[in-house]
Design a protein around this nucleic acid. Structure first.
Length: 564
RNA sequence: UGGGGCGUCGCCAAGCGGUAAGGCACUGGGUUUUGAUCCCAGCAUUCGUAGGUUCGAAUCCUGCCGCCCCAGCCA
């Protein structure tokens, strides 16, 4: 697809980078990083950050590291570490040999902490969580200094060593920065630097450590150690920046990256917080992290979104500091644009209605040729079998309708896509009065050309009853009913907003024979219906199972609804 | 004693003192063996608001209003 990448794309962060380059800051280097915590799967909000960080590195001849911010072992695991790498790669980015873990720096982090203690800028505090909260003050009232704040350097050194040695239980003591309990910025009221965590096996360091550094302390040090020039993060870290700078100003390290914040992505009809996504998975509201309805990279991949379309989306929404709620239509347009250009066309009938073509010889069939793409001849063609009995979609026939309805009506004509024009001669019903079959005739002169003297406006897709392959289709709709899925009534839960009809399964579908050879990861357009992909988890099954990625734009639906 | 941010079309977003880009959505019209695609046209006299500075303000200044974030030993 025509990615706007690196052409017109600019944003305030790129402007800062360009300015830095111009003034020779950082010796003309650009070095970014994408630093996820491995406590869940990546979602489209992460994709925004990935596209930003790796994109800047690529466009300004710099580098971008992948770094796991793995300082809180009991929320993290190796499954997440693996999935994150897979997802970043799938999105099209390469960190080469620069895969890092914050835990790589545990020793250095420790040594810098000792340095802070020696400089009288950090102390061991015995207050428990509740006491600490009380001492911290409130948003409007200053905090009180901890009674342990004035311990001697020697005592702090000894205590910190004992923390590290495992002499204390979880929560018994922490190491704190000595900054300002009266600061209007809560983050500067002697923030915790280290806490004690026993009995957890860290996915990288095992049981080597029982003290773990906090994000606010770890992040600036990790960035500096890696020579990051621009440390990009989301808006909620804005008031952590003074602490980020404090850490680097008070340890013996020369590199001092610039933290720049941008707004996180909010998307209509879904949630993008790891906490909530975790709940959806853990409480069984969805099949898993890769459920096709999930806004995760894994879910979107399984759903059939292309990496290019996700990248394009991330570029189109831009980077700013204002928080917004992006319409789904924006994302949908990106995938439709990509798939329209690249997906081969096929025919599939999802609500079959049998059509018997009475003047077509019994037992006969023929192989018709159909292009794989209406505009791109290079995509070739395939054979489609035609015979006396075919299926069309129930929605493509009405006993009677006004002239706005361009499909088949009793006594009317319609073209079978890539085949002949047929005319409905009779409607067969069962005892309940339901339509079960159509009796039609076909005009043998209409293959590849229009009939003489009359216009046939409608075209419908079809599948040969004799040659078609039966299978399943899963139709996905928005996961939530509310555009702002996070917004809940007093006392409610965000899961109250879940759309009960986000998944519909159709088991009585017919696919044209060429679809039997569909491979994992191949997207198709089922003409007049939408874009589909084989479900990767069901690919081993004998029966075909397709996921609907997205419908085609449907202007008929609007006309029909307004009384067409 | 509160602090930090943000307000430009329905949504996203350029704009950086010289007279409101673009994309999505939407509305018309054309082409079409997909009611798709494609093409063409339309869509902010006005930038949260009230003042001020200026020949000139979305851009600078002041006040007001609205929204978001912060009181984890989470990130």
């Amino acid at each position: 697809m025509s990615e706007t990448e690196n052409s017109t794309t600019t944003n305030f962060i790129r402007q800062i980078v360009e300015q830095d380059l111009k003034t020779g800051k950082n010796d003309g280097h650009v070095h970014t990083r994408f630093p996820p915590e491995p406590n869940g799967y990546l979602h489209i909000g992460h994709a925004k950050s990935i596209v930003l960080n790796f994109g800047i590195a690529r466009d300004y001849n710099g580098q971008c590291n992948l770094r796991f911010d793995d300082t809180n072992p009991h929320k993290e695991n190796i499954e997440f570490v693996d999935s994150i790498q897979q997802d970043v790669r799938w999105l099209g980015y390469d960190w080469q040999d620069r895969l890092f873990y914050a835990s790589n720096y545990f020793q250095q982090l420790h040594d810098f902490a000792v340095e802070l203690i020696q400089a009288g800028k950090a102390y061991v505090c015995d207050l428990d969580g509740e006491q600490m909260r009380a001492y911290r003050g409130t948003l409007k009232a200053p905090g009180q200094e901890s009674p342990y704040r004035s311990r001697s350097v020697e005592e702090n050194l000894a205590l910190f060593a004992r923390m590290k040695a495992g002499d204390f239980a979880d929560g018994e003591r922490v190491l704190r920065a000595k900054i300002d309990m009266g600061s209007p910025n809560m983050n500067l009221r002697d923030p915790t630097l280290y806490r004690i965590r026993h009995g957890v096996i860290h996915h990288q360091t095992g049981e080597a450590w029982c003290i773990y550094p906090m994000y606010d302390y770890t992040h600036p040090v990790s960035d500096a150690l890696e020579g990051i020039t621009h440390s990009l993060c989301t808006l909620e870290f804005e008031d952590h920046r003074p602490l980020y700078d404090w850490v680097l100003d008070n340890i013996s390290i020369s590199c001092h990256p610039q933290q720049i914040e941008f707004s996180r992505l909010n998307l209509e009809y879904t949630v993008l917080s790891k906490r909530k996504l975790t709940q959806l998975v853990d409480e069984g509201f969805v099949e898993g992290w890769d459920d096709p309805r999930m806004p995760t990279v894994a879910g979107m991949r399984r759903r059939g979104y292309s990496a290019a379309s996700i990248r394009e989306f991330c570029l189109r929404i831009g980077i700013t500091k204002s928080d917004g709620l992006v319409e789904m239509g924006m994302l949908e347009n990106c995938i439709r644009e990509d798939l329209d250009a690249h997906a081969p066309r096929r025919m599939a009938v999802m609500h079959p209605l049998k059509v018997v073509i009475e003047n077509y010889p019994q037992g006969q069939s023929e192989s018709l040729t159909a292009p794989n793409h209406p505009k791109d001849e290079a995509m070739g063609e395939r054979q489609i079998d035609f015979c006396r009995e075919v299926y069309i979609d129930q929605a493509d026939f009405r006993e009677q309708a006004n002239k706005k309805y361009k499909r088949l009506v009793t006594g009317g004509e319609v073209r079978l896509r890539n085949a002949y024009v047929i005319k409905c001669e009779a409607v067969m019903k069962n005892n309940q009065g339901e339509i079960v079959e159509l009796r039609c005739s076909y005009d043998p002169e209409t293959l590849g050309k229009n009939p003489q003297g009359r216009k046939v406006r409608g075209v419908v897709h079809w599948v040969s009853a004799q040659h078609g392959v039966k299978g399943e289709v899963r139709l996905y709709d928005r996961l939530f009913n509310q555009a702002n899925a996070d917004k809940v009534e007093e006392g409610g839960r965000f899961t109250d907003n879940l759309n009960p009809d986000s998944l519909r399964t159709l088991t009585d579908c017919y696919f044209e024979p060429a679809l039997a050879k569909a491979g994992v990861g191949e997207q198709y357009q089922f003409e007049r219906e939408g874009y589909f992909i084989l479900d990767s988890r069901e690919a081993a099954r004998e029966e075909l199972v397709f996921n609907r990625i997205i419908t085609l734009r449907d202007s008929w639906a609007k006309i029909d609804k307004t009384g067409g």
